[in-house]
Each structure stands twice: as structure tokens, then as C-alpha cells.
Design a protein around this nucleic acid. Sequence first.
DNA 1: GACTCCCGCCACTAA
DNA 2: TTAGTGGCGGGAGTC
Length: 883
Amino acid sequence: MKDTAKKNCSVFLGEVADRDAIMDPEEKENTFFEPHKRVLKTPLKQPCSSNLVLAEIQPDSGSLTTPTKLKEVLLGEPWTPTANLKMLISAASPEIRNREQQRELLTVGSETQEPKDSLLEQLSGDEYEKTQPSRKDKSLGLLCHKFLARYPNFPNPAVNNDICLDEVAEELSVERRRIYDIVNVLESLHMVSRLAKNRYTWHGRHNLIKTFDALKKAGEENNYAEQILVIKRREFDREFEFIEDKSKELKANPTTVGHSDMCFVELPGMEFKAASVNGRKDKSLRVMSQKFVMLFLVSKPQIVSLEVAAKILIGEDQVEDLDKSKFKTKIRRLYDIANVLSSLDLIKKVHVTEEKGRKPAFKWTGPDSSPEIDVPDIKCIDNTALSPAKTEEIKTSKEQCAKNLFSSRGKQSFTRHPSLIKLAKSIESDRRKINSAPTSPIKSNTEGTDSNSASLPSKMAQLAAICKLHLEEQSKGLKKKMKRNCKSTFSVESKLHPKSKSTSESPPQPQSLLPLINSDFSRAMPVILPHPHSGTSYAIYLHPSQAAAMTTQSPRCEAHCVPCANGTGIKCFPGPVSEVALDNPANGAEGANRTAHCVTNARSLPLTSEEQAAEHLCVPGNCCKRAQTQEDISASKRLKGGPVTQDDTSGTLFPSGYLIPLAHLASLGKDHVFSRRENGVVSSEHKIPTSPYTGLIPVSASEFSALNYPSLHMTPLKLMVSPTSLTAVPMMSPVNPSLGSSPFFPSQSPSPAILNFTLQHLGLLSPGGHVSSNPVALAASPKNSPVPEDLSKHHEQMFRHVSPVPGHSQFTGQPVTIFALQQSSMPLTPKGTQPVEEHFFRTPGGVTTMSASSPTDAGSTSKSSVGAVSIPQRKLDVGAEVL
DNA sequence: GACTCCCGCCACTAA
DNA sequence: TTAGTGGCGGGAGTC
């Protein structure tokens, strides 16, 4: 019998249950009541026989005191899914829980114990084991839910909100040790503060935004994000080629990632009063929790893999000691933190999948810290308690705290340690994984504080918008347009110019929607690249400076030169594109590092003439595969909006790009690429990295602006569609039937159920409507339904939001990165596939996806983003209800 | 087999 | 000395 059997059980008092039961959830939520008083009459610990273990995990459901119910559970359905669900509901809903309590307390007598005992005595060992709750039922997250359910989110600060840990532990029937885990994390968020031994004060979420702001500021002021990038950049120095340079750089860079003294960021009036922590070597869960949150707040996207978080947040002080066992320990702690944060709805567990397997990650779903909030008095404590001195000192303390958190001073050598290099590699690797699902629904919410509520509609909007766009495309009669479109890459280039005819013919568009057109994109030039194996040439759009730089950097440059339409001259596509991208500032460490891998490979091998040519293309298997993820990052970032796009689209850089087989370009040009002139609409929408067009290599968002697909003509649709979704539109375009039946279409498709639900949710489909995945039928439904005006606004906002804007980068280097497509989205046995395309895009690595762990996300995110935005070959039966 | 994370030992510190 | 804290890692449950 485990020690858990010795645990004490407790019984909820009727008084508490009565009050909660009669209180509306909302009322309860906003009405203050003294938490500590709720437990004042909690009975003292009573020896609880082992047969009451169930009470520990179901203290609130009332089953612990209900003989009948216990019997059912024990004998009939020991923690069946239904039972679990009941328990979860009970835990999540104080009202339900307390009603049950109230009801059951009326019927439960003092003899309750005996039946349970007798029942359990009759159980065999196995049977008893079956009666034990599963681990999930005892998870820290669930416990935290229970804990949080006890207190209002926004308590009245004028009233006593003390929490007695012992009493809470009793009521929740858990060890106090577990309560500490929760409280420590809550304390890091200033949701509670320690009063004295065994007593805390509940603050609820009053200080949450301030805390986030403080943490974010602390991270930003210390260039935490940049440090992460620096680390990530190092990740790709696999051969430690640049270790010396990096060391010098790090010495000169005060923001270098370095040792992190344990420090706790405080808010004014919420000084840390932990009894033992100050004197203890603090590897406190609080500090870890704060750092963990900081990572989300400063990261773009706000997704952090568990591994990276563990290494950065926990192990950065002793990376050298990050042996396996220690790392595992760190991971355990991070799980503890993550569980609590998840219970607070601040993060959400997701998974990053690539060829190596599935990796856990967490997505920030909490509110972004408000930059308007001034948190002047943030301070921190470390092992030497800070005296509550002057404000100035406090500010200094704050600064010092932040510096302590991230400072490298005195331990700059830390960053040069090989273990950190490994760490950096892991960081970038995880980031790459995280961002490898361009249309993953795990899109950060940038427009509101309630990301949870926003994420799902966004996903739905993507799917629905695809259908809408498709219909729109159909109605536009694109076949006409393709005849009038330019037929060469030079024409494409001409469209890049903001004053090009096509642009001038286009109706006035909000400037905000065309950030790429009037910026550096106008100077973009197509460079024709030969494919060594297929003979098919590819076009890539490069910034002139990039092309020039590449020309000089690559002595082996054999790329085709293409005249620049804007008269800047002829530019040559350089040698290894990936090499050029290695130090791409716009790409940041991600892109640079990503491509570095390719470069390394290229360098390590003697080049034959064919290999040299292949090198230019960064062909399959390594470079493109890596590079593709960069595109994913770009797409992912664009989804996040303005600030993010700054990183993506530097004013002087083209962070990524599509390599477009000329053969496709010609056809695409007819169908899509040159349609802007016809449509009169210029979309700043971006491509999806996992373009279904085999052979189509992702190009930067900027380039994509020039490659507007007519289907991207969003104006009449007035739908808020994610860029990545739009990218997929062409693949369901009926204009080019060959595409519709070609392998360009991804094998995956969104579940019809999801599609139906999405359309219904958006009002595009009646509840009884049904949509199957058939682009043909969809295309055959040309009728468009009127779209609410507000959707148009959303549309504009979205466009503005995702439009890249000139950004900056701390890195120097070349901006171009060539990306490959996700092969997972490609049918392995495509029909009518052009050999060149198949060859070009086949990557051995498989899929890189990010899927949400929640069932909600699973349907739309698995199998990469393409699945969420693409409509497969199967018939898409969109009835009139849709429109 | 990897991932999760519950569980409780036990060291440390304050009262 | 006792009780409060919480770091830590074994190991079991889950996927």
C-alpha cells in the first residue's frame, strides 16, 4: 500500500458548499469572499484509511463522502472516462461541485466511512488498484484547477485573502508539498504572496498584467530575445567554425546570454517574503516560472519548446552540468510549472513534430503584457534580500535584477562553452520545429488578450476563406486573365516595381496593405536558376543588394543573370543560396542558422560541375528542407502581426523566397502570378511555405506580393484569412485543372467535418449543410454570399497586420534563403507530376509539423498546415447553403 | 521507448 | 528542536 493511502482526507463543510452552491459562477467570480474563511471550519486532519484515496482526487465531487457513489465508482466504473469527466467538470466548475457537495452532504452520515472500508476490504489488490485514480486525475494541473476554483480571479484587495496552505491541502486532499508547487508558481506571477509560514495572501489576477509587463520589460531590457537569437545562431555552428568570432562578438555584446543569477522579479507591494528561499541556493520554482513566462513574452512566436525552455531557463546557470539526469530533473520542474501555467490558461501545450519525433512545446495563450502599463517599481530579490529603499533604488534594483537574470558579465565564457553551443543548437532546432507548421493553428493571438477564443475562429476563418476565395476566384473568370498575363519572369519582375503598369492599373489600395510593393520589393529581381537534374530553371526574387553580395561571395556562381527591371542592372544569382542566407540579418539567427547547415554540407564536399549547379539550388534533402522551415517561421510570424513582421521583412532584406520552376512560372503566371493587373488588386498576402505546387519554393513575403494569385483577390470576400491559408488557394483553383488533379495538391485535406464545422461556424454553411473536400465542386459554386462589412474590416486589419514592414536585424549578412516544401504535404505518388518537381522537392526528412495537443487543434493542424488550408483532389461538395 | 509527472525523501532554514 | 520549504530524482503511468 502506498503512502498515499495514509493520506488524510477531509470533508467539505456544508457551510462552504451552501455558499458556493447558491452563488452564480459569475457572481462568484466577481464577488469577493474571504478565501481563508472558507476553510476556517474545515475539520482537522483525520486519519483516512487507504480506501479513501479516491477522496484525494475527488474531494469536490462529493464522492468521497457518498457511500453509494463511492460504491459505483469502486466497483462499477473505476475512473472511467465518464467518471473522469465528471471529476474534471466538478473541479472546473465550483458551482457544480458545490451543488453536489451540498446535496451529498445532506445524505452523508457519519457512517460513511464504514461502507467504504467494507467495500474496499472485499477488493483484491488488482481491484483496488483499479479503484485508484489515474495519474491524470491527480495531475498538478488538475489540482491547480481545484485550487484556483477556490478563489475569485479578482478578489477584493481590501479584505483578508489569506490562504492557509495546510487547510488548502486538507481540503484538496493532497500533500502540502503539492500545494507548494502551485503556490510557488502563482507567487512568481504575483497571484499570491507569502504572508508568513504556511500562510499566503491571494491576489488573484489583479497583478497579472503588470507582472507580465514587468517580466517582459525585464527580458526586453536585457535583450533577452536577442540573446536567444545569438544562442540560436550558434546552434548552427556545428563545426564550431566561427567559435572564435562568436566569442569575440559575445565579449563585445553586453547582451550575450550568460549566467543567470537567481533573481525574482517583484512588483511594488508584493515583495517576496519566502522564508527559506532567500537563504537557500535558489533554484526556486518561482524564478524558473518567471523565466519561463519571460521566454513566451519576448519570443516571437510565443511558443517555446519544453526542451529549449529547460535549457535556457533552468540550465543556463550551469549548462556545463547539464548532464542527462540533471536535465531530466530540470524538465520535471518545468512540467510542474507548465501544468500550473496551463491551469491558469496562460500557456497551452502543443507538440512539435519532425523526423526525430514529437517534442513538447508550449504556446502562450495568456494576455500579452501591456506596454502602456508602467511598472516602475519592479524589483528583484536574490540571495541577498533587498531593502525596501527609495524608488530610485528600486528601479536600480529592477534593472539589476533584469541584468542578473540575463547578464553575462563575469561569465562570458559561459557562452563559449561547448555545452552552450549544444544548447543553442537545440534552441534553434526547436524553434525551427515550432515554426515548421506555417499554417498551424497554433498561431499566437496578437489582437486580443483572449487568444484562446481567437485561435479557433482564426483557424476556421482560414478554412472558410479558402472556400470563399476559391469561389471568388471562380467568379473572376481567371482563364481570361491568364491569357493576358505576362509569360516570363521578366514580366514578373516588372510587376515588382511599385510604378509598374499593373500596379498603376490596380485600384487604389490602402497603403498599409501594400508595404512590400512600395518598399524594397520594388527592387526585387528575379534570378533564374537552373536545376541540375531536371533541367528546369527556377526563378528566385532577390534584393539587388543580395544578388550583388551573393555574386561577390560565391566565386562559383554560375547562376543565370537576369536583367533588373527597375534598371538597376543585371544581377546574378550567386552560388549557394544557403550560404548567402547564412548571415542574413533579416532571417535572423533562424534563417541564417538554418541555411548554415546547408552551407556546411556544401563546403564539406568537393563539388562536381553538377554539384555546383545543384548547390545553387540548395536542393532537396538538406538545404531546402532546412530552409523551408525558415519560411515557416516567416509565415508564422506574419500571422502574428506587425512587430513580428519586422523581423521577417527587413527593409533591405528578403528573408525568404520561393524558387519557382520556370515551367510553373509560365503556367502559374497565366493562372495566378500575373493576375494582379487583371484583378486590380494587389494582395500583400503571403505564401504558405508548404506550397502545394511541387517545385515551387517558398520565397519571401515580399516576393509573393509580386506573385499575387488572382485567387488572393480578397476584396469582395471580406474575410479574414491568414496568409498561409491564402497561399493554399491556388491549389484548389479550378483555373488550372491540371493542378487540381495534379500531385501539387497535398494528400492531406482538412477533415470534412472540420470544414463543415468551420463553415457553419462562420455562417457560411447552415448547420445542416455539408461540405466534402472537393475543390471541383467548390469551384462550381460561383455564387458568393454577401459578406458582412465587419469582415471586410477584419480583412484589412489582417492584411495590415501581416504585411511585412521594414525591420531591423542585429545580424549582418545576406538575406536570401531558399526553402523547400514540406514533402509530407505532397503525394508520394503524384499523378502527372513533373519529374523535375518531384525531384526538386523531395526531402527525406518527412514532415515537420506542429500540432496542438488538444483535440481542437488536432484536426486542423496535424499533417502540417497544408492540411488546414488545402483542399484536396477529392470532390468538394459545397452546396448552395454555403453561399 | 520516450514522454509525463506523481510522489515523497530529505536537506535546508526559520521560528 | 520542530516545522515549514522546496530541491530533487526514482519510477510508474501514458502515449
